[in-house]
C-alpha cells in the first residue's frame, strides 16, 4: 500500500511471549455451563442491537444538526452549490483573517481565479512549515451525522488532515444530501464512496469533528481554541434550486 518500508521490525520473541500469555490465561478461565451458553449466545448474536432512532426527514436532520453545532459555537451557512465562492467572500469579509484561504489540491470548488479570495493550494505540510500559524483553511466533509452534529472528513491530497487542525478558522464544505442521521450511516456512505472510486477504506485518517477546539483543563472552565481552530464555519450547499 505504501512504498516506504519501515526499518523497525517487530521482534518475534516478544510476539510469541505475548500470545502465549494470552493463550494460557484463556485456558485458566473456568466458567459454568450456564455462563458458557450465555457466552456462546453472545458470540453469535452480540451485534443484534442496532442503534436506530426514529427516522427524520432531511429538513429535521438539518435542524438538529444546526441546533447542536450552533450550541457548540460553530457557525452554519446555507447556499446553492454555484454560490459557494460568493458565500466564502461574504464570510471572510466579516472576519479579521484576511483574504488568504488554504485549500487542498483538486478541491471541490476548483479555486476560482476571479475571486476576491486568494486560494492557496497546499501540498505537503513540510513545504508550508514556515508559516504554520494559518488563518483560514477550507476542507470538505464526505458526510455528517445529525445525532451529535458531527462532520466526517477523509484524509487525502484534496483534503490534507493538517488543514483541519492548524488553521485559526476552519471552514468545511458539506453537501446537504450527505447529511445522515447516525454515525453508522455516515460510515456506510464513506465505505460506499471509497468502493466506487476504488480507494481503500478506511483512508489514513477519518476525522469526526463536532465543533471548534476546546479545553476545560483550567479550573474546568470551557475555553475555545485550545490547539486547533478557534472558529469552525460550515457551509452547507444544495444543488437543487430550493434551499
Amino acid at each position: 500500500m505504501t512504498n516506504i518500508t519501515p526499518q523497525i521490525k517487530p521482534k518475534e520473541s516478544r510476539r510469541s511471549k505475548f500470545l502465549k500469555n494470552v493463550k494460557e490465561a484463556k485456558k485458566k478461565v473456568t466458567i459454568s455451563k450456564e455462563q458458557k451458553l450465555k457466552l456462546k449466545q453472545q458470540k453469535e448474536a452480540y451485534q443484534e442491537f442496532k442503534y436506530q432512532p426514529e427516522e427524520k426527514t432531511l429538513e429535521d436532520k438539518f435542524a438538529q444538526f444546526k441546533e447542536i453545532l450552533t450550541s457548540q459555537s460553530a457557525e452554519i451557512y446555507e447556499c446553492y452549490e454555484n454560490q459557494i465562492n460568493e458565500k466564502l467572500e461574504e464570510i471572510l469579509k466579516e472576519k479579521p483573517y484576511g483574504q488568504d484561504l488554504l485549500i487542498g489540491k483538486n478541491n471541490k470548488i476548483n479555486s476560482p481565479k476571479n475571486s476576491a479570495i486568494n486560494f492557496i493550494e497546499v501540498e505537503s505540510f513540510e513545504k508550508n512549515k514556515e508559516n504554520y500559524n494559518l488563518n483560514c483553511a477550507l476542507t470538505t466533509a464526505f458526510a455528517a451525522a445529525s445525532e451529535t452534529g458531527t462532520l466526517f472528513l477523509n484524509s487525502g491530497c484534496e483534503n490534507p488532515t493538517w488543514l483541519n487542525y492548524l488553521a485559526t478558522c476552519h471552514i468545511v464544505l458539506l453537501d446537504k444530501n450527505s447529511l445522515c442521521q447516525t454515525y453508522e450511516e455516515a460510515f456506510a456512505k464513506g465505505k460506499k464512496e471509497a468502493g466506487l472510486s476504488n480507494k481503500p477504506f478506511p483512508p489514513r485518517s477519518i476525522n469526526m469533528i463536532s465543533g471548534p477546539s476546546r479545553t476545560a483543563d483550567i479550573e474546568q472552565t470551557l475555553t475555545l481554541g485550545a490547539h486547533g481552530p478557534i472558529e469552525l464555519i460550515i457551509i452547507v450547499y444544495t444543488s437543487e434550486r430550493e434551499v
Binding site: 500500500m1 505504501t2 512504498n3 516506504i4 519501515p6 523497525i8 447542536i68 457548540q72 487542498g104 489540491k105 497546499v122 501540498e123 505537503s124 505540510f125 513540510e126 445525532e147 451529535t148 458531527t150 484524509s155 487525502g156 491530497c157 490534507p160 488532515t161 493538517w162 481503500p200 478506511p202 483512508p203 489514513r204 485518517s205 477519518i206 476525522n207 469526526m208 469533528i209 463536532s210 465543533g211 471548534p212 477546539s213 476546546r214 486547533g228
Partner: peptide, 26 residues
C-alpha cells in the same frame, strides 16, 4: 458532552497519493 470535539480514526501510514501524513505507523 454528547461527543468529544475530535474523534479520529488512524489506519496505517499516509497512502501513496497523499501529500501529507506520517510515513511510518507503529
Amino acid at each position: 458532552q454528547s461527543i468529544s470535539t475530535y474523534t479520529t480514526f488512524a489506519t496505517g501510514p499516509k497512502r501513496e497519493e497523499d501529500t501529507s501524513g506520517p510515513e511510518e505507523f507503529h
